[in-house]
Design a protein around this nucleic acid. Structure first.
Lengths: 337, 337
DNA sequence: GTGAAAGCGCTAACAT
DNA sequence: ATGTTAGCGCTTTCAC
């Protein structure tokens, strides 16, 4: 059975020293004026007794936790796990704790998460929304509670909040141009069923690049499907069964792109000689396949530091602002184009 | 500038209704006895006013948060991001929030995290320790505070706490046997510099399998290096530069195994005909490469559910127990053996 | 430089 | 079924 909890409080420390607990509080937080001698004595005794500040009490009293929240649709894809990992490191460095939430791409869960965020009075929120989150409405509740938030990568449309986004249009545009430059003329586009703007932007970039290079937009070459490697495999089959086969394929995710490569190799096409392939996300998985996958990369470290800085600025200035930071992607050339 | 925070408390709800705030508290938590009529009225008014329970106050008052903590060395490797993702899902389902911490493989950070855990009075902890954490000592502080914890995958040696571990010895053993069965006789072993027991167990399994099959243990065929794909690449080069080249390679991580495959293909060896390769972890990345990597897989869902169940049992029974759950790994045959 | 008083929002225990 | 009391551990404000 559990034994008595021997939680040490500032009052215990105070009693031991025959002083007032308020003085202990002051000393331990290095605020107010406490004689150096007393302060040292207090700190010594506190660590001697194994005093650990009760954050629950502190947070309650201060009406705010020291917690930053990160909300992502799914923690497993490389982009998100890397973002979260990096974000945690710089947040912890700066003295914040981090709570992570996963919406599983469900708007309903996202709403519950926001209620929890308010309940916990988190200090700030960094969020990437679900594929279906079109409106900012449920995030507005945070604003009512004066909890600053910034969106990264995926924001609601017309969000009136600070955002750190990738220029997806440009990324897709450049990827298509890269294939055109290497001599490709019939470039296909594989997307997911997800409706979020980032995917529409990529499609727009694709279309514009074709247009600017006097290439026709062929409806059959634009298809949508699932999110994973096997989906890419299946989509590639559909594309290569066409009478007018593509000689280049842009996939909205690296995983999909890898599935494409696997199918192409299976049916004996050479990459990039017969068909070029480009993906999105700079997933390390792209290095595992052969040829290595050329990809449109967004700089995660700069997204992390922008998100963090913009959030902290709002927290410290006690204002809710609306800034838009656009990260320009770049193509990482490997072997598939 | 920030406008006045309009935080609604139970007292506000009570005042509006001309009743006592304790009744509101009872009604909202569905405890004690409150007339159904009153209860309904209260709930209606509460949601009307947009009341959100102040978790900070609740947790403080209850002396415990409703938070489960997960501590991992690094969030990015597939094994950990998948574990955390799954764990969060079932924890959220059960009404807990989750805080995630990353030790970055540093014992010092791990200690700080534990202090934070105590400060936040988390309800329970699930942890996988750093590569250098040999002793349980800093976790014992949690026990003093009656915070239950369970280790998963990586535990301190001789930990006196509940653990969910993988039978690493067996995994390595079977992997070697698999290669022997396919006719390999000179099997190499690539590990990391990490000292943690899980890697030593794998090495032991490797040795035992050789022994049981009357194969000599050749020192030169066992090498250690980094953690990543390029490290595997480099190690493979060393191995294949040997006069006595191996015809099978067991790598302690899939990423390393993929690096090995890349090197072997580069210098023209066929896989698995000339050299077989097996990795550990069932990282989806292994499906991206060619041939697809055969791997020793631990079932992450069962690790998650065991960890969660064992933790919750301790929380609910108010006891700290010491159980050891061993998950048996299995080999997933793909193309590299 | 230190102490005394008050209260954050909530809930357990007791009283009615 | 509802109300009263008290206090969790801490920090802010004001007094000395």
């Amino acid at each position: 059975m559990i034994e008595k909890r021997n939680t040490v409080t500032i009052k215990d420390v105070a009693r031991e020293l025959g002083i007032h607990h308020v003085t202990v509080s002051r000393a331990l937080r290095n605020t107010g004026s406490v004689k150096k001698e007393t302060r040292d004595q207090i700190k010594k005794k506190a660590s001697e007794l194994g005093y650990k500040p009760n954050r629950l009490a502190q947070n309650f009293r201060n009406k705010r936790s020291n917690v930053l929240a990160v909300v992502v649709p799914d923690l497993r894809p490389y982009f998100f796990s890397k973002f979260v990992s990096d974000f945690m490191n710089i947040a912890q460095e700066a003295g914040y704790s981090v709570m992570i939430f996963q919406s599983s791409e469900k708007t309903g869960v996202e709403k519950e998460i926001i209620d929890a965020l308010i309940g916990y009075r988190v200090t700030g929120v960094v969020a990437s929304v679900t594929k279906d989150t079109v409106y900012e409405s449920h995030f507005n509740i945070l604003r009512d509670e004066n909890i600053p938030y910034v969106f990264f990568d995926r924001a609601p449309e017309q969000a009136e909040a600070t955002q750190v986004l990738v220029n997806n249009f440009q990324g897709a545009y450049e990827a298509v141009v890269a294939m055109i430059k290497s001599g490709k003329r019939k470039i296909a586009y594989i997307s997911t069923h997800y409706q979020h703007k980032i995917f529409r932007d990529r499609l727009d970039g694709y279309k514009q690049a074709l247009k600017d290079n006097n290439l026709p937009y062929i409806k059959e070459l634009v298809i949508k499907g699932g999110f994973f490697m096997n989906d890419g495999f299946d989509q590639a089959k559909k594309l290569m069964d066409l009478k007018e086969k593509p000689d280049g394929i842009l996939a909205v995710r690296d995983e999909i792109g890898i599935g494409v490569i696997k199918y192409l190799k299976k049916i004996g096409f050479r990459i990039p000689e017969d068909v070029a392939v480009i993906g999105f996300d700079n997933d390390p998985m792209g290095v595992a396949c052969e040829p290595e996958l050329t990809t449109v990369a967004q700089s995660i470290p700069s997204m992390v530091s922008s998100s963090f800085d913009l959030l902290i600025r709002q927290i410290n200035s006690n204002t809710l602002s609306f800034e838009k930071k656009i990260i320009e992607p770049s193509i990482i050339y490997r072997g598939s184009v």
